[in-house]
Design a protein around this nucleic acid. Structure first.
Lengths: 365, 365
DNA sequence: TCGCTACATGAATCACCTT
DNA sequence: AAAGGTGATTCATGTAGCG
């Protein structure tokens, strides 16, 4: 797979996102985050009950003639994004009910495989001033891999740690972007009507990429994706055609502090931690041949052999094999994780042999 | 618009939902709630960490060959539903990321107008046992009117009351259906794999229909929609082709207690209250000509005239007209609700004239 | 500096009837 | 059919100003 040279990353490409993506090499990007126009189709002006005017999105870039036009635009940029994505890469899109169904259907049609839809619940949404509908208090993100059965990156443990050791759910509660984070012109007007909070991008980039990866945002706006990518030690590419947004983003990212130490940022999934054969524990003298192992409730037992296999017996007979095989055979279960199943005695206490594996792993670093 | 005769409501039609809907008169239904098959495309079996098998959805009715087949099915049932819906009616669909984007795009293409997408956040979702994705902790509902600019029903105040006097948001936190509510066979197996909680249907039916309305569910299953409709004093029609589900639903709804008193269920919007001209208050002697009215902070004042108009003045001159016009003119605001703006003195206290309107309204009953 | 009030504002598909 | 009148309608934050 092509590795983008240093002069092609950490910069904003000024122009149409489809043309710019088509000019990049195929399979060169690890993560795409896209915040496309929502096609809001707003009517006239809307007043708050106190008669002040709501400053809606009235920019030309959100105007589309009809659904067919919007769908064509969507298919085109999604296809361009898919080409530059590595086979292990993934794509995020954010939208509202105005556009997200069309985007979701289009990406499924193109061959992307939906992994999750994520709901960004806003702590402080704008109310429905006329009392005509439910308060529109959320936006939707779709996370998908390039195709079905693709191997993608998901930093499960990092997300779990971010969520007080509970699995991160598909609904995220975050405030809208305001206060000092919100970029404003000299005259105090918002620099971009739909600036996303950095906390949202933090979760996106943290969950599905690694330090050093290339993150691309085809609708860069004022560069939230670039700023967070820089903070998290990822490379980034922004595409934006509005010169004013580009200038704002450049200044913003220049002022953003770089990631301190890449090691602090990486969150290797346990699955990719170096595999330790059980035999190594015997080899290294952490367990002697003949040692008795038992399950947590001491219902079954087995002995360690010098070659790193176990041997044990129950009513059905003798069983010989790996820690996993013998655990499964003795309990009658279809499978068994021997590392957490078997316990050894140390200082009068029975502890899981996984503790010894951890000891070996830390010695290896 | 045709009114369905009593023998055509409060019953389950056994058969294909498209054929059955096509046999109903056009524009005869007030609300459609649909929980269509999800097109899950599950792979092999899924095991929990303790090796018990997860009981997924494997019924034949959930099998579709590909997206095109599913899309055709979706368009067909949505079109049939749209035909039988009154112009003021609305439709709800529930789905997950597997199908909801396709359903949403299809209904927009057909001409439905999305009013809200609602997120059902589950308090107790099934965890992601393999740690490969975010916990899929929600499902999505789409609420739409028959077409753009249609007048639809939304019981704003009822929803606000259900939410401690704050506007009801687009994210609803509700437990999944379990415990005694979950219908089970004699042998303890769940009667339907995707039974929805009654609390969910309660909000759907309560928010967007009135007592006496006809609620139709084309994928009736075990009849949650019918049970809640009966509890809320709505008429209902269920369509279901599986005889076993039909039997379960029949028994369930027969055992459901009917709505006690229709008056307790209705939640008429304030706009629908009978209109009371301000002049009636003067006619009835509740306010005498010449009475001084002031705003809440006593910044502006006006006098009542015998014909039910006001007269007042400020730096810009004298203003004469309706309570609304004079309130707006004196404050310089573009508009003003005179009923809540103006206050009269009673027993030494200044009270809004809306209180007098209430008094007239209650006398009229 | 602290506490209070007032004011501003955010991806918004935001009314309905009579003349 | 277009225009005008009535009257219904907001939550969480951040900031500015005042005493």
């Amino acid at each position: 797979m092509p590795i983008l040279s240093p002069d092609r990353v950490n910069r904003i490409l000024v122009g149409d996102c489809i043309a710019e993506m088509n000019a990049l090499p195929a399979e060169s990007v690890d993560l795409v985050f896209a915040d496309p126009p929502y096609n809001l189709q707003l009517g006239g002006e809307l007043l708050r009950p106190n008669h002040t005017r709501v400053d809606g999105v009235e920019e030309d870039w959100d105007k589309f003639h009809d659904f067919a036009t919007y769908d064509r635009f969507t298919r085109d940029w999604l296809s361009a994004a898919r080409r530059i994505l590595k086979p292990t890469g993934s794509l995020w899109v954010i939208g509202s009910y105005h556009n997200i169904f069309r985007v979701g259907a289009a990406l499924q049609d193109i061959g992307f495989w939906v992994l999750n839809d994520i709901v960004w619940r806003k702590t402080n949404p704008m109310p429905n001033f006329r009392g005509t509908r439910f308060t529109n208090a959320h936006e939707t993100l779709i996370w998908c891999s390039r195709e079905r059965d693709a191997r993608y990156r998901f930093n499960y443990d990092a997300m779990k740690a971010l969520n007080e050791e509970l699995q991160m759910r598909s609904d995220w509660l975050l405030p809208i972007c305001g206060g000092p984070e919100r970029l404003r012109d000299d005259d105090g007007r918002k620099a971009h009507p739909t600036q996303k909070p950095e906390a949202l991008l933090y979760r996106v980039i943290m969950s599905s990429s690694r330090p050093g990866d290339v993150v691309l945002d085809p609708f860069f706006g004022t560069g939230t994706t670039g700023a967070v990518a820089k903070r998290l030690g990822r490379k980034w590419i922004g595409i934006e055609r509005d010169a004013s947004y580009v200038a704002t983003a450049e200044a913003r990212i220049a002022a953003t502090e770089e990631a301190p130490d890449p090691d602090l940022l990486d969150a290797p999934p346990k699955r990719q931690a170096p595999r330790i054969p059980f035999g190594w524990l015997v080899e290294r003298g952490l367990l002697r041949p003949g040692t008795m192992l038992v399950d947590q409730r001491r219902r079954v037992a087995a002995r360690v052999r010098a070659d790193g296999t176990l041997i044990g017996e129950n009513a059905l007979g003798r069983h010989h094999g790996s820690i996993h095989q013998v655990g499964a055979a003795l309990t009658g279960l279809p499978a068994c994780n021997g590392w957490t199943f078997w316990h050894y005695e140390e200082a009068g206490q029975w502890k899981p042999i996984d503790l010894l594996r951890e000891r070996v792993r830390s010695e290896m670093n």
